[in-house]
Write a protein that binds this DNA or RNA. Structure first.
Length: 593
RNA sequence: GGGGCCGUCGUUCAGCCUGGUUUAGGACGCCAGAUUGUCAAUCUGGAGGUCGCGGGUUCAAAUCCCGUCGGCCCCGCCA
């Protein structure tokens, strides 16, 4: 290696030194007798000067340089002539007067400019990901991700955690997301699954005496993608023995505060607010509220009972709710703007959306104003003022909450209520243990089947499962679910009760989870843990709007890699070895490849 | 599985609603020449597109219709 410095580090302190730099041609400005080249590497940009008077042969070579050529240059660091400094560059005070040039590799004209100002479509960026990654922004995000990982490892190492790897080829289990399957060649007709998370292994590690485990664990879920969801992603996964919920929450608060401080200079101050599931659903209509703006859901159920509006009264009388949002200054909304809100509410599952403008002197403007008493409404909505718009959903409580929760989130963005400089972490605790799945006609675990119920709710387990709360907790940051965890079940008897409640037959439980039950019977410590989404954390810290920006080689919404073309058909011989036959439909599907 | 937005020289965008003077245009990039202090260099000249693909309507389709492929956002899904 012959380079002596990086392109971001030369300053006036180096003036007079002979240096060698290497990198990519970021731009060229040819003035005839003198050619300026911006040389770029991971660390920055340095201006090179090829002067025909000073060094004719180097100048002649430099005439051939084009964008993205890979070169190595030797020259002398010099102060730029007064007035020609570039304040936008860290190296803007100096330049390197080239005496020798080596062209390591020419480059064809790139399909898009390696530059942060002009951006190509994402499809093109992904196809030529190596060009995209050369952009300073992407370099910054890759480095940030490394720094976050490093800070996490260092923090947990200092607290006695062991980083332990768990299998990627593992066992498919019921419940949860769709598995990615891998056929076994030596065991015809059987399959491994890629882990959705190392959940069972980390519990087994506790039973194995590991005490404190962590892993930056790659996880795989074959579900549809979102801007914050990729089919393979990385979790900061950890588990501890002999702990209670509070131990985990405190540890993670310290972890997050330190990581944010060290990697982004961000100051978070623990303890984070702890809101129960019921509280956040009531107040924000979602289990991952963005607390950077207020706009809480209001409850008009009591008011509705007294009104003469049948839709409202009916909703409450049949066990539902009337929920509302008070939109500040919303009375100025145009009719089409309001219609848009109504349409969205319907999209989100509500039967309709009632709206009331509050005019001067609390005169109500609305198609349904005649049903309401302004004074009573004013009393029910202490936050409402003249000039506001009230929107209401009367439905089952969950539909009313969800609909307005989603509208709240959209309005937060559209009305620019979000204080973007704020960082608002919170814990959501006291989740219900189960919810009823109407399709499957059975109870399913809200978190997962290994989550311990609250001890005081155990008496209701069989009689009123929906009333049972779990020792589960989610960490939410700025409206994103950053992670979740729980205190686990360490009693084999309780674990059997839960399986049975979930309708997992004993024979199935034995086949799928027999190893866990058996392990619990052989001396399992109380334990609990959590997993945080590393990609989402880096995305938030990096201030970028897509998880794809913090993954070096992400997949598209159809779960394809545009760089390599994965997934792709394989040779029939490979399939034969694996004892796999394709259906007619699958063969048709391959023709696109 | 469903809803929405998008696809036009290498790139990015206009044109599409209201089909025909558009030989499909601008900017960036590219090529050639000029140019000794630029950093969005500049000046002169030039090349480059069967408008994602297939079908239909029409005298005539980038433009209207249907289908399809691809990208993005959302619902469902994500213990």
């Amino acid at each position: 290696m012959t380079r002596t410095h990086r392109c971001g580090e030369l300053t006036r302190a180096h003036v007079g030194q002979t240096v060698t730099l290497a990198g990519w041609v970021h731009g060229r400005r040819d003035h005839g007798g003198v050619i300026f080249i911006d040389l770029r590497d991971r660390e920055g940009i340095t201006q090179l000067v090829f002067d025909s008077d000073a060094n004719l042969s180097a100048h002649q070579q430099a005439e051939h340089l084009r964008d993205e050529y890979v070169i190595e240059v030797t020259g002398v660091v010099a102060l730029r002539p007064p007035g020609s400094e570039n304040p936008h560059l860290s190296t803007g005070e100096i330049e390197v007067r080239a005496t020798a040039l080596r062209i390591w590799n020419a480059a064809k004209t790139p399909p898009f400019s390696v530059d942060d100002t002009i951006h190509a479509t994402e499809a093109l960026r992904l196809k030529y990901r190596y060009l995209d990654l050369r952009r300073p922004t992407m370099q910054r995000l890759l480095a940030l991700r490394h720094h976050v990982s490093f800070a996490v490892r260092s923090f947990l190492h200092e607290r006695g955690f062991l980083e332990i790897e768990t299998p990627i080829l593992t066992k498919s289990t019921p419940e949860g997301a769709r598995d990615y399957l891998v056929p076994s060649r030596v065991n015809p007709g059987t399959f491994y699954a890629l882990p959705q998370s190392p959940q069972l292994f980390k519990q087994i590690l506790m039973i194995g005496g590991a005490d404190r485990y962590f892993q930056l664990a790659r996880c795989f879920r074959d579900e549809d993608l979102r801007l914050d969801r990729q089919p393979e992603f990385t979790q900061i996964d950890l588990e501890m023995s002999f702990v209670e919920r509070e131990d985990i929450l405190t540890l993670i608060e310290a972890l997050l505060a330190e990581v944010c401080q060290r990697t982004a200079g961000l100051h978070l101050s623990p303890p984070f607010p702890r809101l129960t599931y019921d509280e956040v659903m009531n107040r924000y209509g979602t289990d991952k509220p963005d607390l950077r703006f207020d706009l809480p859901l209001e409850d008009l159920s009591d008011f509705a009972k007294t009104s003469s509006f049948n839709v409202f009264r009916h909703a409450v009388e049949t066990g539902g709710s009337v929920k509302a949002l008070v939109i500040p200054q919303g009375a100025g909304f145009s009719r089409s703007r309001i219609d848009q809100l109504v349409d969205r509410a319907k999209e989100f599952g509500a039967k309709g959306l009632a709206w009331i403008k509050i005019g001067e002197g609390w005169k109500l403007e609305s198609a349904i104003a005649k049903f309401f008493d302004a004074t009573a409404l004013q009393k029910a909505l202490p936050r409402a003022h003249v000039g506001d718009l009230v929107i209401c959903v009367a439905d089952s409580t969950s539909v009313a909450q969800q609909t307005l929760g989603r509208l709240r989130s959209r309005l937060g963005t559209e009305l620019q209520l979000i204080e973007t400089s704020q960082w608002k972490p919170l814990w959501v605790i006291d989740f219900p243990m189960f919810e009823y799945d109407e399709e499957a006609k059975r109870y399913v675990a809200l978190h997962h089947p290994f989550t311990s119920p609250m001890p005081e709710d155990l008496p209701h387990l069989e009689t009123d499962p929906l009333r049972v709360r779990a020792q589960a907790y989610d960490l939410v940051l700025n409206g994103f679910e950053l992670g979740g965890g729980s205190i686990r079940i360490h009693s084999p008897a309780l674990q059997r009760r839960i399986f049975s409640l979930l309708g997992i037959a004993q024979s199935e439980a034995a086949e799928k989870f027999g190893f866990l039950i058996e392990a619990l019977e052989l001396g399992a410590p109380p334990h609990g843990g959590i997993a945080l989404g590393l990609d989402r954390l880096v995305m938030l810290l990096g201030g970028t709007e897509s998880i794809r920006d913090v993954i070096a080689f992400p997949k598209t919404q159809k779960a394809q890699c545009l760089l390599t073309g994965a997934p792709s058909p394989v040779d029939p011989e490979q399939l034969q070895e694996l004892h796999i036959a394709l259906t007619r439909e699958a063969e048709d599907g391959q023709e696109g490849h």
